[in-house]
């Protein structure tokens, strides 16, 4: 187990280094950073001085090394647009995105898992058929359309929920802000979370349903029934647990996707998260933000995958023997 964790950690570091190389090369190939930073009237001497000061004349491996060391300390340089440290900009935006993603994931799991179990166990019931048809809608409609639909219904027509922003936020600690503690903050979270989580919810539901149908047919479920175990134990302790391995894989990856690709939802609801910032950065060629975003995304995926692998071990005892 420990050996496996260490091996996985090494692989993770390699992945992050490769992404770091990509994100570093953004600086080299997407325009000249000096030109982006200074005005038109700056003289050539001044430019050269700046170039020297920024270390742009050093050999490339040295520059890359410096980039990695700084990135490891969360120092991604200064934004071209805002002239503020990138890490500070992210610190301001991260809570909004994480909160949104977390709520969407919660929504997706809390609704998707029970629906999936129900549809798997009661294959022929009308309700499961309804779930399946609804889930088709969730899969086939694009996010922005659902978002706009919700805004039209609940903000414009019914005027129940706010159409944009995070509402009132409360500051916790030095930089974390949360909307979970105020009424308006919670109200503001509802529609974006549903919009963002709908696709994941349907995916989880369909996956669990399919896996449940598969597991219910196995001999050990038949044997569990033949031993007279109550349905509760058969369904949840035996069947559900055996469906979990694929479900965890997908859920983990989807959670990463929720955080990294909340861009569209954030745009629709004008959610002040990283997604919007990233879009602006792309429009204004703000390379430090783009490269930091790239690294952050990769980092999130690597961490999530690592956790998923560890979870496999906890769930499935067969893996423990084979790899240990």
């Amino acid at each position: 187990m420990l050996g496996f964790a260490v091996r996985r950690l090494m692989q993770a570091i390699v992945v992050l280094l490769v992404v770091a190389l990509l994100s570093f090369s953004l600086f080299r190939f997407v325009g000249d950073p000096v030109n982006m930073m200074v005005g038109i009237e700056t003289s050539i001497q001044e430019r050269e001085a700046l170039r020297e000061r920024l270390g742009l004349n050093d050999p490339i491996p040295v520059q890359f090394g410096r980039f990695v060391v700084k990135a490891a300390q969360f120092d991604f340089g200064t934004s071209y647009q805002f002239h503020q440290p990138v890490s500070e900009l992210f610190a301001k935006r991260i809570p909004a995105t994480l909160e949104l993603s977390f709520m969407s994931a919660l929504f997706a799991l809390a609704v998707g898992v029970p629906m999936g179990i129900y549809a798997g166990l009661n294959r022929e019931s009308r309700l499961s058929k309804l779930f399946l048809s609804v889930s088709l809608v969730g899969i086939s409609l694009p996010t922005f359309f659902i978002g706009i639909l919700l805004i039209f219904l609940f903000s414009v027509t019914l005027q129940w929920l706010p159409s944009y922003g995070r509402g009132e936020v409360v500051k916790i600690g030095s930089w974390w802000t949360t909307g979970l503690l105020t009424w308006s903050g919670l109200k503001a979270l509802i529609m974006p979370s549903i919009t963002l989580g709908l696709y994941q919810m349907t995916l989880i539901m369909r996956l669990i349903r399919a896996e449940m149908l598969e597991v219910i047919r196995t001999d050990y479920i038949k044997f569990a029934r033949a031993r007279g175990l109550p349905d509760r134990i058969v369904h949840f302790r035996h069947a559900l647990k055996n469906t979990l391995v694929p479900v965890i894989t997908i859920t983990g990856l989807q959670l990463g996707a929720l955080i990294a690709f909340a861009t569209i939802t954030e745009t629709v609801f004008q959610w002040p998260g990283m997604g919007i910032m990233f879009l602006q950065a792309v429009q204004n060629v703000d390379i430090p933000i783009m490269s930091a975003y790239l690294l952050l995304t990769a980092f999130l995926f690597v961490v999530i995958n690592f956790i998923v692998d560890i979870l496999y071990f906890l769930i499935d005892p067969r893996l423990r023997v084979e790899r240990a």
């Binding site: 001999d219 044997f223 031993r227 007279g228 302790r237 035996h238 647990k241 769930i315 499935d316 005892p317």
Partner: peptide, 25 residues
């Protein structure tokens, strides 16, 4: 009927490799 199963009537299946839940001791 469920109460009879296991309590009064036990059952043994054909394939021992698949009749136990692999994830439980």
């Amino acid at each position: 009927k469920r109460r009879l199963r296991g309590r009064k009537i036990g059952m043994i299946f054909q394939d021992p490799l698949t009749s136990l839940d692999p994830l439980q001791t």
